[in-house]
């Protein structure tokens, strides 16, 4: 069976907090084939870290479960799906709000979804209470030509060319 994507990888791991670093580093290594800038790579690492942390502390609430990540590449876009079979989100709109957290006692900042949304181009949340949550994030990685265009545009704007 031929994939519709240029490349794909799947990852499954236990919902242990030490796997947060493992997950973001692994996805970043997979994304590296698109030749992202340091900033784009940092954005991806941060967004993955937020999504995986949510699964571990909210989805499974520190019980043991499996967190799954599927990352796929098509042209210059990376799609990253982070899913769990934890307790699910009751009110997605509320969960997306900046500074909203159900775990203030754990010093959670409530910025997880806000960071995912601003560091990635698209973030979709699917969740069913009692069944689990799936986060789908997409990010377009700029090609060298696009970066050149932006730089040239900047130079034109300041009268450099």
């Amino acid at each position: 069976m031929k994939s519709l994507y240029d490349n794909e990888m799947n990852l499954e791991f236990l919902s242990r907090s030490k796997n947060e670093a493992f997950a973001r580093i692994t996805v970043a290594a997979f994304a590296a084939q698109l030749d992202p800038t340091i900033e784009e790579l940092a954005d991806i690492k941060t967004a993955v870290s937020e999504a995986v942390t949510n699964s571990i502390i909210h989805g499974y609430e520190d019980t043991e479960g499996i967190v799954k990540i599927r990352a796929r590449i098509l042209d210059n876009t990376i799609e990253i799906e982070v899913s769990d079979t934890g307790k699910g989100i009751e009110d997605i709109e509320l969960a997306r709000k900046p500074l909203y957290t159900t775990k203030a006692n754990l010093e959670r900042s409530g910025m997880g979804f806000t960071i995912m949304e601003s560091f990635m181009d698209e973030v979709d949340i699917e969740s069913v209470v009692g069944l689990g949550t799936k986060i789908l994030m997409k990010k377009h990685i700029k090609k060298d030509e696009e970066i050149d265009e932006i730089e040239n545009a900047d130079l034109t704007a300041i009268g450099g060319r």
């Binding site: 690492k45 937020e50 942390t53 754990l106 010093e107 959670r108 900042s109 910025m111 960071i115």
Partner: peptide
């Protein structure tokens, strides 16, 4: 070189 939103909560605390 890396910090996510957990760091924000930690710093505010």
């Amino acid at each position: 070189s890396f910090m996510d939103s957990a760091g924000i909560g930690m710093i505010i605390g």
